[in-house]
């Protein structure tokens, strides 16, 4: 017997909402999903009228749904935002080139301007070339650090006031757990924030309008809306530790459906003991990007790549920052040490 939509009471229910367990029809699901994002945007005051907003678009389901919903809400509620897509090309053959095709189709479907910034043009290195030098063990460190900066650089080129990213509730919950598992209290405190203010001149404020949207619902939304997205995992990806955390969250969700939002609630209510040292943010002496060290992480990583010593940026070598800044060569001993860590 067909179940009636618990929301409108008229149409046939097509799905059971993972978030609430209610059986709803397609239209009511779309409406509720969009309204929830709208509610988040309004109550967190994420945007101001007339702002230029860059949507970080990877071609994946999160950013595709984000772009779609932002466009819908911007029109429905007259946010008055000037939306544009911002993509980063890491230079990964067979992954990013394909997903960028998706972004380009999205650009036409949504009629939004698109800007693509590439690692190659920004850093002179593609991820393919980086992996060739560093192997598959630490490549995610490079990719993560470079992407963060690349988005900012692209945003500055586009002159946007804000960047919004497709981070969903599952991502936020996962980050909370990862920071507990890594003992990173500074990040633990920041990671549940829905938006980050501008930190220094090099950084564009960011926000996560999908912060409370379940990944499962994002998939359902994309599926029922027949959105065009790219669904292959990054070929260089899996970080074993993060993979464990991800599986754990999926398992938790199967035991108690609200676990994801429960973890976010925990994260939002944590407080850090006074006297626990928090890194002081300054700016990178070389590129001006925010950094708690003399050199930002991206510059150190890049220096390592260019000197053929990729370990330079991976383990902590703050002592060597002075030499890098002064463009001095390392001693034989220092080089040997870095190389031996490689094995």
């Amino acid at each position: 017997m067909p179940v009636q939509c618990s929301c409108c009471g008229e149409k046939r229910a097509m799905l059971k909402r993972p978030k609430t367990g209610h059986s709803v029809c397609k239209d009511c699901f779309f409406w509720a999903f969009e309204e929830e994002v709208h509610e988040t945007i309004v109550s967190a005051k994420l945007f101001r009228h007339g702002e230029r907003v860059g949507i970080a678009a990877s071609g994946g389901k999160d950013s595709t749904v984000l772009a779609h919903v932002m466009k819908v809400l911007n029109e429905r509620y007259g946010y008055g935002l000037e939306l544009m897509l911002l993509s980063v090309d890491e230079g990964i053959t067979g992954y990013r080139d394909d997903s960028l095709e998706t972004v380009k189709r999205n650009q036409q479907q949504y009629e939004l301007p698109l800007k693509i910034v590439s690692y190659e043009e920004l850093y002179g290195w593609t991820m393919d070339a980086i992996v060739k030098q560093v192997g598959l063990k630490n490549n995610c460190t490079f990719c993560g650090v470079f992407r963060r900066q690349a988005l900012d650089r692209g945003a500055i080129m586009l002159k946007v006031d804000k960047i919004c990213t497709g981070h969903n509730a599952d991502d936020v919950a996962e980050t909370v757990l990862m920071n507990v598992l890594r003992g990173d209290v500074a990040r633990l405190r920041r990671c549940t924030a829905i938006s980050t203010a501008s930190e220094g001149e090099a950084v564009v404020p960011r926000c996560k309008p999908l912060k409370y949207a379940y990944e499962k619902e994002i998939v359902l939304y994309a599926y029922f809306k027949k959105l065009d997205y790219f669904s292959t995992e990054c070929i260089y990806s899996p970080n074993a530790y993060r993979g464990h955390a991800r599986t754990f969250i999926k398992d938790l969700e199967s035991v108690r459906a609200s676990s994801i939002v429960d973890i976010i609630h925990s994260g939002e209510n944590l407080s850090v003991r006074e006297g626990v040292k928090m890194p002081v943010q300054g700016t990178c002496n070389r590129c001006g990007y925010i950094s708690s060290q003399a050199l930002c992480k991206a510059c150190v990583l890049l220096e390592g790549l260019n000197r053929g010593l990729p370990r330079l940026g991976i383990s902590k070598h703050h002592r060597l920052h002075g030499k890098i800044l002064a463009r001095q060569p390392l001693t034989e001993k220092e080089e040997r040490k870095l190389r031996s860590e490689n094995s």
Binding site: S6, K19, V24, C28, T40, A44, Y212, V261
Partner: peptide
């Protein structure tokens, strides 16, 4: 204001029977 708790309440509210009411348009 904005929190996991409020988001959950919003979701519950939005998935429940509402008939044909639609929320109003925003103003600035």
């Amino acid at each position: 204001g904005v929190s996991a708790l409020q988001a959950t309440l919003t979701s519950e509210k939005l998935s429940k029977f509402r008939g044909n009411t639609r929320p109003g348009m925003p103003v600035l």
